[in-house]
Computed example of a mutant assay.
Amino acid sequence: MTNNQAKQLYSKGTELLSLGRLQEALNYFREAIDSDPSCIEAHIELGFLLGTLEKYEESIKVFDQALSMEPNFPCFFGKGMALFFLEDYENSLDAFLEAQETGENEDLWYYMGSIHLFSGNCESAVNCFEIAISMDEEFIEAWNDGGVAYSILEDDENALVYFREALLIDPDYAPAVYNMGATLVEMGRYEESLPYLDKTLENEPEHFKALFYMGNVLYFTEKEEEAAEYFKKALKIDRNQEELWNYLGYVQFSLGQNHEAVESLNEAIKINKDYEAAYLNLGNVYLDLGKDNLALDCFERVLEISPDNEEALFQKDNLKDEWD
């Protein structure tokens, strides 16, 4: 075939792609490359389309073939994207840095920021997200993920600024709705967090973390019975959460449900044999039940884990004084 025929095949592929007929477009791009292996445009479109279809290894091969002919921004960027979705973040970052040599766009900076975020380099992540936002002020994912990075850096005020900006773009953007609620809970602003947690659970009733946070908010606003119900809902989703069992046990104890509290706290201890807080809470429940020997065992176990625990030392000394 001639070079002109390859271009015709490529053009037909782009037309089919615009109509959403992906598999047909894929075939035309392959035919264009078969007819003219130097058709760089067909390589680029094929590489990105393979990525869209989650055929990432094939996508990388196509971009590598194109790069051997012409090192350019789309090919380095496309290869970086395929590596990113394969969770090969180190090589993905290398490809994005190569792409920067010949160009940039907001997506490049966003995905570089995401790699830094995943690796725990939150300051670099924020810098990348800010550059992406400077190129596109409506880049909602960059606003949200920038807020996540600030949260990890324990800069909750800036995190709220970023989440609010995301919600100004789309008030129903689920990640930012949840993140606003969670951040407000962490800041102790419980009443303010409720509308965001409510909205998250309206849209996703089995959102585990939102259920957990809602239980905490209700407990701290002295609605213990409702708090216990949310903790139980969360445990139906994931029972292997020692912290959640401990919280439930503590709430049950505060409601006078001592036998239920013993069961919950023992579940926490089954999951984590060294869970100091659960032993401490269980000891206090046993004290309330008048089971002093079992309470002492719990406080001694706390002191094995943490010899300086003041509450356990106090309770142990009190029990021993009573027995002397």
Rank of each mutant, 00 (worst) to 15 (best):
T2D: 15
T2C: 07
Q8T: 08
K12A: 10
G13R: 07
T14I: 04
S18I: 05
S18W: 02
Q23H: 05
E24V: 10
E24F: 07
A25E: 02
A25P: 03
F29R: 00
R30V: 14
E31M: 15
A32P: 11
S35F: 09
P37L: 06
P37S: 12
S38T: 15
S38D: 15
E45I: 01
G47R: 12
L50Q: 13
G51S: 08
E57P: 03
E57S: 07
S59D: 02
V62G: 08
A66S: 15
S68D: 15
S68A: 14
M69Y: 06
E70S: 00
P71K: 00
P74Q: 07
M81A: 06
A82Y: 02
F84W: 10
F85H: 13
D88G: 01
Y89A: 02
S92F: 00
A99C: 11
E101S: 00
T102L: 00
G103I: 00
E106D: 11
W109G: 00
W109F: 15
M112A: 04
S114L: 05
I115E: 03
S119I: 01
G120N: 12
N121F: 10
N121P: 07
S124R: 09
S124C: 04
A125F: 07
N127W: 05
F129T: 01
E130I: 06
E130F: 08
E130S: 15
D136Q: 11
E137W: 05
E138R: 10
I140N: 07
E141F: 01
D145N: 14
A149S: 14
Y150S: 03
Y150G: 02
E154V: 06
D155N: 15
D155C: 08
N158C: 05
F163N: 02
I169G: 06
P171A: 04
Y173A: 07
A174R: 13
Y178Q: 03
Y178R: 05
Y178W: 14
G181M: 10
T183S: 09
L184C: 12
E186N: 04
E186R: 12
R189W: 01
L201R: 10
N203W: 08
N203P: 03
E206A: 12
H207I: 02
M214W: 05
Y219S: 13
K223P: 00
E224L: 00
Y230A: 00
K232M: 13
K233F: 02
L235A: 10
I237V: 14
R239K: 10
E242P: 14
E242T: 05
E243M: 07
Y247E: 08
L248Y: 04
Y250D: 06
V251T: 02
Q252G: 11
N258R: 12
H259W: 10
H259V: 08
V262Y: 13
E263I: 06
I269A: 07
I271P: 06
Y275Q: 09
E276M: 13
Y279T: 11
L282H: 03
N284K: 14
D288I: 09
L289D: 04
K291L: 10
K291F: 09
D292H: 04
N293H: 14
A295L: 14
L296Y: 07
D297V: 01
E300N: 10
R301V: 01
V302G: 08
I305L: 14
S306I: 02
S306Q: 12
D308N: 09
D308P: 02
N309V: 09
E310Q: 15
L313G: 10
F314G: 03
Q315G: 01
Q315W: 03
N318H: 13
N318I: 09
D321T: 11
D324Y: 11
D324S: 14
D324Q: 12
